[in-house]
Structure formats: structure tokens, C-alpha cells
Amino acid sequence: MCKVAILDKFVLFAAGIQSILDKSEGCEVIVQAVDCNDLFKQLKNGAPDVIIFDVIHGENSGMKQIKKIRRAYSEIPVLLILSQNYSDCFEEYIRLGVKGFVFNDATGDDLVKAIKRLHAGGEFFRKKVWDIFKTSLQKRKYSKKKVENLTEREVAVLKLFSSGLTYKEIGARLSISPRTVESHKRNILSKLKINSTADMVRYAFHHNILS
């Protein structure tokens, strides 16, 4: 059972999220808070596995609240509910350690899938997140540099991750197993001294290796 905390300024919207999770299998809402102080007070009674934060109804794009949460509970993955209007903040959210985005037009199934993905130790960023993210990165100018130490197969895996494909999709594209894809990703992260898929996307565009 995945224990969930909901941070939403408006109780009505939080109740809607809780209703979706109550009908799902494997998720239990243990905290419903209106601000960080309320959240931290309730978390003293027990920590959740995932924190859902409704950025749309937060203040100043939710940056201040996210920083507070990450400082106090860095081990708990944070899932944001937002809209494409926050695209300018995507990179900063990811830099702060947010593990997933769910857009306000997503389905209840998408929300549950995202929560379970984070609970399992993964990330949840749909392809359109990477599309928006990459468009933002393309507007910046970077010099082309050689990709050192990566094998030809690792470069191929890096490119496909940067296109928003999943482990299974990359495996099918390269005729290898998802487990092998995971192994290649670990090697890429280690060689480039980076930590996440978001870092891989950033690296790929900074070094123009997708061109």
C-alpha cells in the first residue's frame, strides 16, 4: 500500500484527488494539508511514501514550498500537479528534485500510475514534458562538444531517453531487453557523472548530440 500526502491550498480540490485515490487499488491518503506548516505538523504522526503538491493553487509557482519540503523530507518523492503554463519552471522543478509531473488535464488513472511509479523509485515525466523541456533548451546556445567515453549503443540509448521513450520502448527499438536498457542507463549516468533522466536530456541538448 502506497501512503500519500496531499498538499493543496483548496480543500475542495484536495478532496477530488482523495476521491480518485480512494477508488484506486494500492493507494491510501494519510495526510491532507493546506500549507507546508500544516503538512509538517501532520507528518510528525507518520511519513508518506509520496507527496502530491498542487502547484496550480500554490504561491509563486510553488518554488518556496518545494524547497521547504525537499529540505525537510528529501527522501520522500514529490509529484506535482500543474499545467503547461508552468513550462518555464520545469527545469527548476527537476533541479530541486521533483520526481514527476501530472498535468491538470490528466486522467485519474494517470495520477495513480504516477504515484505508483514514484513509490517504486522511478520518475514520471510524460513525453510532452520532455518536448516542452527540450524546446526551452533549444532556445539556448551551446557549443558542440565531443561525447566522451560513451559507446555507440550508450549514445543511442541516451538519444532515445531524451526523446521521451520508456525502457520497454527503447528495448523494442534497439532489440534488447528493458533490463539491458536499464544497465546502459546506469553506465551513462556513471560515466557522465549525472543523476537522472532529466540530467540526460539536459546533457544531450547541451552537447548537441541529437542533431
Rank of each mutant, 00 (worst) to 15 (best):
T151L: 11
H207I: 13
D109E: 13
H207Q: 14
D109G: 09
L82P: 08
R140F: 02
L165C: 05
V157W: 09
V31S: 11
G62H: 13
I52M: 14
Q65H: 10
H119R: 05
D109F: 01
C36Q: 15
S74F: 09
V4T: 08
V78N: 02
V4E: 04
F90A: 11
M1E: 01
V181Y: 05
F133R: 06
D49I: 01
S83D: 14
D109L: 06
F124Y: 05
S74N: 05
D8T: 09
P178C: 11
K193M: 12
N187P: 01
G62S: 14
R173C: 07
L12C: 03
F125L: 09
K134D: 03
Q42N: 10
K193P: 05
C89P: 03
V78R: 02
S183P: 03
H184A: 00
K185N: 09
G46I: 07
V155R: 08
R186S: 00
E59K: 11
E123S: 12
S136D: 14
E148P: 00
R179S: 02
A156H: 10
Y167T: 07
S163L: 07
K141N: 08
D109K: 02
F101G: 00
L43A: 12
Y203R: 03
L80H: 13
N104H: 11
K41V: 04
R173D: 05
V201K: 04
A156S: 09
A156T: 07
K23V: 11
I81T: 15
I115N: 10
D38P: 15
K127F: 01
V157Y: 06
T151M: 07
K44I: 08
A204S: 04
S175K: 10
L80R: 10
F13P: 03
H57N: 15
F10M: 08
K144I: 13
F101T: 06
A14F: 10
L12M: 11
G16C: 10
N149S: 08
F53A: 03
F161D: 00
L174C: 12
Q32S: 02
V155F: 01
F124D: 08
L165Q: 15
K185G: 01
V34E: 03
N85A: 03
N60Y: 13
T166Y: 02
V4Y: 14
I188E: 00
